[in-house]
Design a binder for these strands. Structure first.
Lengths: 217, 217
DNA sequence: TTAACATGAAAACATATGTTCGGAACACGT
DNA sequence: ACGTGTTCCGAACATATGTTTTCATGTTAA
């Protein structure tokens, strides 16, 4: 899934810029946009490298049309400019929650990504995603293979679905969060299951779940 | 959510074309693209109407840049060109499944829509979506308010999650489908729940669930 | 009616932008 | 060193595309 391949650094830079620019602006850059951004001395060099990128199937070009570059995904399909969040790791009962960097990671190709509704991104800002391994979250209506979109946060309001880390149990879990005095109630979304009670000291909130995406093959 | 407003028909047509073209091509049309598509005699007329659309906040224009039109959503945010599927209705135990038209509906503004990953659209073709009302699908790990993305189909393979209509019970449900001789087993996704058995005659498959999207506010 | 304003048409204009060409610089195997 | 292919450069070229100007045609209110 990672987009990379032995390629001259300048060419790789052009490809990275293409994706970034399209995501940022909703239209592909012009040859001269690329020239400036990648500090290339001539438009012909950009044109040359774009043709190389066409040959190896990373982009497509519409002849003679302004901003005619189409960026292709692994399957040769044009990509959209919808906001994408990185799947920075997996979550399962007993696994530590992977650390994520809050700064805009430059190595944006290291992770798989999922598309999210633009409202989400605008509403919550920086998001990340985790893939759920196993059925241990099934009482929160989250199945094996689901992807949960998370807004980083170390606090939560009552009723929020949160990524919680239980220190003693060394276990990550997804539950609805309710503070009740000095203890915390973690309520499964499925009302037929019983809540978990534990002391507030034992619970670390790592983020709020803002969306769940399930892909059935 | 419906984009409409008292507006000269020609201007409305331009706006519709803008959205359609951007979704189709991933880049906005040029003034002359609009001119041809909307059968307008002069580019100046297009330019004029585009400026009117800017005034009422439906689009934005980047001066002097080719294909510089940005289409805005209700909140004034630029829209993405990710594939969108219509939410054609709701599903709940006991409710009839709404009919959907398979032809590309011209009245594309009548329904709410959800963005889906482009892979889905390419993989499955025409899709539609239903909003789930109530918790009657909870044994399929589908909560109140979830949106299910569905590929129309009147058949199903064993193991598919399907939209099933139980004729006798007059009930729509989401379950995994298994044909077992002359009867059908409808298996909840949640393994702690028991399957439903019924005769094959009593089951109508209306589509396969290809994705579930949950939005927690 | 007239005045003010919104809309449409035709043509020209200005420039943003894809493309091409001749040649130089570089990399790499023989 | 040599040849061959790749990459880069500068400049010009061709046209795709936003913009402007001038005028005509409505449409509405005083």
């Amino acid at each position: 899934m990672v987009i990379s391949r032995k390629m001259p650094p300048r060419r790789q830079r052009i490809l990275d810029f293409l994706q970034e620019f399209y995501l940022e602006n909703g239209i592909p850059p012009t040859v001269r946009d690329i020239q400036k951004a990648c500090e290339i001395s001539s438009t012909s060099v950009v044109d040359y490298n774009l043709d190389r990128l066409v040959e190896i199937g990373y982009i497509r070009r519409r002849p003679d049309v302004a901003r005619g570059i189409e960026i292709l995904d692994g399957g040769g399909q044009p990509v959209s400019n919808a906001p994408r969040v990185q799947i920075v790791g997996a979550i399962a009962a007993g696994t530590p929650i992977p650390a994520w960097s809050t700064e805009t990671s430059e190595s944006s190709q290291e992770f798989d990504t999922v598309e999210v509704a633009p409202e989400l991104q605008h509403q919550h800002g920086k998001l990340f995603a985790l893939k759920v391994n196993g059925t241990s979250m099934i009482d929160a209506l989250i199945d094996d293979g689901d992807v949960v979109i998370i807004k980083p946060s170390d606090t939560a309001s009552n009723g929020d679905m949160v990524v919680a880390w239980l220190k003693d149990e060394e276990e990550a879990t997804l539950k609805r969060f309710y503070r009740e005095g000095s203890r915390v109630r973690l309520q499964p979304a499925n009302s037929t299951m019983n809540p978990i009670y534990c002391s507030a000291d034992n619970v670390e909130v790592h983020g709020k779940v803002v969306s769940v995406i399930r892909q059935l093959d």
